Simulated scan of single mutants.
Amino acid sequence: MANEGFFERVYEVVEQIPEGMVATYGQVARLVGEPRKARFVGYALHSNPRPGIVPCHRVVFADGSICEGFAFGGKEVQRVLLEGEGVVFADDDHVDLSVSRWPAGLA
């Protein structure tokens, strides 16, 4: 399958996001060398073959919003997981990216 290499690169990057920080889908796409494939990062994470190892809950949208349909229980579960790691929220549905964004790949 053509996506296997891309998906595996996504998992390798996401595994590096430190506890207490988040990255955006676009940021992960840039870090794997495919800056226009943020949506495909989402597909990869939805197919996460290693739940609990690949911390896909640490990936959010460009505006800091958490995923409505978080694959592992909804946005409430994603928020609880992130808050449990110390991620700071700006409001009920948005991570404060100025505080909790992983700086990897940012210019």
Rank of each mutant, 00 (worst) to 15 (best):
V32C: 01
G20M: 15
S65Y: 09
R30C: 07
D93W: 11
G33P: 12
Y11P: 10
S47H: 10
F7M: 02
H57Y: 11
S100A: 10
D63P: 14
E4D: 15
I53M: 09
G73H: 06
N48M: 09
R50E: 09
E85I: 06
G69P: 05
V77N: 04
V14G: 01
V80D: 13
I53W: 07
V22S: 08
P18E: 09
Q78S: 12
S98Q: 08
V22T: 08
V99R: 09
G86H: 13
V77Y: 03
N48E: 04
G74Q: 02
V77D: 04
G69K: 09
G42M: 01
C56Y: 07
W102A: 05
V14C: 03
R79C: 15
S98D: 12
Y43I: 03
D93E: 12
G64V: 03
V14P: 13
L81K: 07
P103A: 11
C67F: 07
F7G: 05
V87Y: 10
H46E: 14
M1N: 06
F89R: 02
Y43N: 05
G73I: 11
A2P: 15
D91Y: 09
V54L: 04
Q16Y: 00
L82F: 07
Q16F: 02
V28N: 03
S65R: 09
F72D: 07
D92W: 10
P103S: 14
G5R: 13
L97Y: 13
L97N: 04
A104H: 01
T24S: 08
E85H: 00
E4Q: 10
K37E: 06
G64Y: 11
L82Q: 00
L45E: 01
F70P: 06
V14S: 03
A62S: 07
F61L: 14
L97H: 08
E68P: 11
E68H: 02
E15F: 05
L106I: 04
V59S: 08
P103N: 05
H57R: 04
E4S: 15
Y43D: 09
I53Q: 12
G73W: 08
F61R: 06
Q16R: 12
L31H: 03
E83R: 11
Q27P: 10
V77L: 12
V88R: 07
F70K: 05
E34M: 04
F7P: 00
G26E: 09
F72Q: 05
S98K: 10
V59C: 09
G74H: 11
S47A: 14
F70D: 06
F40E: 11
R9A: 15
